[in-house]
Amino acid sequence: MANRRNTLFYYSPFNFIRELKTAPQLELLTQARISGKPYLGVETPAGECCFYLEALAWDTAYFGLRTHKLQAVLYPKVSLAELAQACRTLVQHLADIGSQYCFLEIPAEDILLIQALGIAGFKLVETRLTYYQNLTEYSHPERFAVRRATEADTDDLQHVARTMRNSFDRFHADPIFSPEKADEFLATYVQQSIRGFADVVLVPDCPGEAPGAFLTANYQRELWPALGLPVAKMVLSAVSGASRQGWYKKLISEMSYHLREQGAVYAFMNTQATNRAVFHTWESLGYRLGGTTHILSYSPGLEQIRSQCT
């Protein structure tokens, strides 16, 4: 752990907020991903390499693929060749336990592990940028009419989620999932967000018309005491280009005000590194780049598995 301390810090989703101390972030990370969790131990010449794998029951049931997430990797000072060999052992372990899909989100700073996983057969499917804002400083000259989404909005928002496809998000970019399955996942996600999976789903308040756009967010209040600072996250958005052009920026602005009203001091969100229009929007509202992560995945027998789930 001590050898990995500096790099593990970048696994914290809040590492770019300077007001937050390192210790509580590492403590939350350790509790969530490492402490008391089973792991695969692989011996290297320098010592044990520990792969912390979590079986994801919901993902397994939804996609019909036995799914695991690689939550963390602890290893001593090793060479690339030694770490790559340990990662090959991980890949064999995944085959032994019948895993059909394994993924992880890894910060760009963890370059040695990225290279070792690539040698072992993991592939890049998405590069994410994180933007953030100090909400105490947020101000926009215009306000826009928004409201919380209700169950009555579900069909419209699911349609928006399905049709406004982003070919570079994790689910659309990974060939293990068909485009249709990825579309349906996002439609399910917004449905469950309305039902309480998200703390809030904001939509345009256009009386007599379908919303045609949405933005979800989680307050993350359960983390505020440990962090010592209220931090919220905007999660998923989609906007119908035909009927709600320009509403993405309006929703981001209004969500910024909403999260501040809920007590959050900071807000952050992720997007793909290919989403250039979004960068411009966020930066025009005062959001700043915080960090870069990659999504890697491993799926044995890709073509055979995909044919079974399309």
Rank of each mutant, 00 (worst) to 15 (best):
K249E: 09
H280R: 12
A232P: 02
A238Y: 02
S99V: 01
E27Y: 11
P211Y: 00
S35V: 00
N275G: 03
P76E: 01
A84S: 15
R221A: 12
R148K: 06
G286D: 06
N270G: 08
Y11H: 14
P13Y: 00
A149S: 10
S178F: 07
L65Y: 07
A32M: 11
A86F: 02
T216M: 04
L113F: 07
H294E: 01
P207C: 09
P211Q: 04
Y75M: 13
P204K: 03
Q100F: 00
G291N: 10
E261I: 00
S237H: 05
R221D: 05
T271H: 11
K181L: 15
L65D: 06
L259F: 03
L90A: 12
I34V: 12
Y10G: 13
Y101R: 05
C309G: 08
P179L: 12
S237N: 04
I17V: 07
V203D: 05
S139H: 02
Y75F: 15
A57I: 04
L296F: 10
P76Q: 01
T89E: 14
R88K: 14
T188G: 12
K37N: 05
P225N: 04
S35P: 00
Q304V: 09
A2E: 14
V73L: 13
R18H: 05
S307K: 12
L223M: 07
A149G: 11
L296R: 07
T292I: 12
H294R: 15
E222Y: 06
A23D: 11
N134G: 09
E151L: 13
F197S: 12
A226N: 09
H294Q: 11
F103S: 15
T130K: 07
P204Q: 10
H172R: 03
P13T: 01
Y39M: 05
Q71V: 04
S253N: 08
L296D: 03
I114D: 02
F279A: 06
Y101W: 08
L251P: 14
W224F: 09
N134K: 05
S12R: 03
L104H: 05
T44W: 08
A242P: 08
Y52N: 11
Y219L: 15
G36C: 07
S139L: 02
G196L: 04
E54Q: 13
I119T: 08
L40C: 14
Q192A: 13
L285V: 03
I119P: 10
Q220E: 04
Y101Q: 08
P38G: 04
M1H: 08
T274H: 06
A57D: 15
Q25W: 00
F268A: 11
A57L: 12
L215W: 00
N270M: 06
C50Q: 15
D156T: 08
E142V: 11
F197M: 13
I119R: 15
G228T: 06
A182G: 12
D155Y: 03
Y298M: 09
V235I: 08
V239I: 08
L70R: 14
S256C: 14
A86C: 13
F14W: 07
L157R: 06
L53T: 04
T7S: 06
E222T: 08
V231F: 06
K37S: 09
L157E: 05
V200K: 00
I295V: 11
S35E: 03
L28C: 14
